[in-house]
Amino acid sequence: MSLWQHQRLRLNSLKSFLSLFLVGAFLSLALTACTGGRESSSTSGKKQNIDLTLVSFAVTRDAYKAIIPKFVKKWKQEQGQNVTFKQSYGGSGSQTRAVIDGLQADIVHLALALDTEKIEKAGLIQPGWEKEIPNNAVASKSVAALVTREGNPKGIKTWADLDKDGVKLITADPKTSGVARWNFLALWNSAIKTGGDEVKATEFVSKVYNNVPILTKDAREATDAFFKQGQADALINYENEIVLAQEKGLKVNYVIPDVNISIDNPVAVVDKNVDKHGNREVAEAFVKYLFTPEAQLEFAKVGFRPVDENVAKTKEFADKYPPVKTLATVQELGGWDAMQEKFFNDGALFDQIQAKKR
């Protein structure tokens, strides 16, 4: 091969290399332009789209219809991330079992601390969760309401009227519903606070539950059984569920008994799941958002008593939620562990009452 031919061959090889290099560079630039945000998102280590799963008790659904879109908009404006919520609503006890059995909840908002503690004991929530959240983690609260038929033909005015012969009552099942456990405690507390001892209280709640023709799965089903199906003479339910029924146009006759119990509903981040899903930051931000005046306003609109003092003091809600004369807490009664063992465990007082029903 001549020197000239050899140099020509080297020149052609160099041209081919430069051509391939330029094509590769162009494709690289084009790919970067097409992926745009995804590339920068990966570089910053921040996901552009985040999923959160909220598991809550049935009667919070209407509040979250308003709260979640507001939080999603706020987070997008402040953090530039799109948050998509998966939601599950049902009886608090049933929801608790579902999370323990594998429902991938990132956040739980349940009817009572006992249910959250069960998830903690299953190893999904770290101990001390209630101390890391405002207001001891209580994001919503209510009291027990006593609902009657129009004109109140059975003359039901207080808890004591519910054990009369001929009176039929609707309430949910304490085995599946957190609301129903609060209802049971409201009845028990009323007997104790009006001068009865535990023997009298047991006799009273036994008579009341003898007057319950059907135990529904949760608070929403109890409301439907009373209003839509026309069952029974009275209904015990959350005040918020009754207020919401009124907001939807139902005419409701109800009283808030002077002797009552504070129904406190805690929220918690499910640590094991958020760490697995990589969404702890947004999950914790959402939980904190629930205590803001903006979110508390939405809870109050659908019947929950605000935990934010400024919202509670507004004329609209101060008139809507008057103070209760004698308001007990579960802590005063001995705490949830004691209440569960005494009343709701298998073979405890509630099961004994059901076994003896006529």
Rank of each mutant, 00 (worst) to 15 (best):
T171Q: 12
L235G: 03
G230F: 01
I156C: 07
D346I: 15
Q331T: 14
A160V: 06
S44P: 00
A25C: 07
T116D: 04
L54Y: 07
D233T: 14
L27F: 15
A312G: 09
P213K: 01
S40A: 09
L31C: 12
N265S: 10
A318N: 07
V243E: 06
K276R: 09
P323D: 06
K118R: 15
K121G: 02
D308P: 06
A180Q: 00
G128K: 04
P69N: 03
A201M: 04
Y254L: 06
L22T: 14
E247F: 10
H277N: 15
K76E: 01
N253T: 10
V282P: 11
D346K: 13
V108Q: 08
Q7K: 14
M339S: 09
V274P: 09
E132R: 09
K200Q: 11
I50Q: 08
A338Y: 11
M1Y: 03
V143P: 00
V255A: 14
L20H: 10
V330D: 03
L169W: 07
L3H: 13
D308G: 07
W182P: 00
K76T: 00
K157M: 05
Y289V: 03
G123W: 00
G128P: 02
I170T: 12
N210P: 08
I133M: 08
Q77H: 14
A66C: 02
N49M: 03
N183M: 10
G195P: 02
A338D: 07
Q48R: 10
K217I: 15
I125N: 11
K248R: 13
E294A: 14
A191D: 10
E39N: 02
A191H: 02
G123I: 03
D224H: 09
A355R: 05
E284R: 15
W188E: 04
T60K: 08
H277K: 05
D165F: 05
V212L: 08
K121V: 02
K288C: 00
A98W: 02
Q5I: 13
E284L: 11
W4I: 10
V330E: 06
A63I: 01
C34R: 03
A234Y: 04
P323F: 06
V179S: 02
T43W: 04
I263M: 11
T314A: 09
D218F: 10
T194G: 00
E130Q: 10
R149A: 11
K357I: 09
Q77L: 12
L110Y: 04
A268M: 05
G36Y: 07
T326K: 00
A338F: 12
T202P: 04
K86G: 13
I170K: 03
S92C: 10
F71Q: 07
G166V: 13
I100A: 06
S262E: 14
H277I: 04
Y89L: 12
F184P: 00
Q296F: 08
N237H: 13
E221H: 05
L290P: 08
V212R: 05
V259M: 03
R8L: 10
K193N: 04
V167D: 10
K15A: 14
A348Y: 03
G178K: 02
Q81W: 02
V23K: 05
A201L: 04
I133S: 07
S142D: 04
D275W: 01
K157Q: 12
W75S: 07
S140N: 11
K357Q: 13
D337H: 09
K74E: 14
P293L: 04
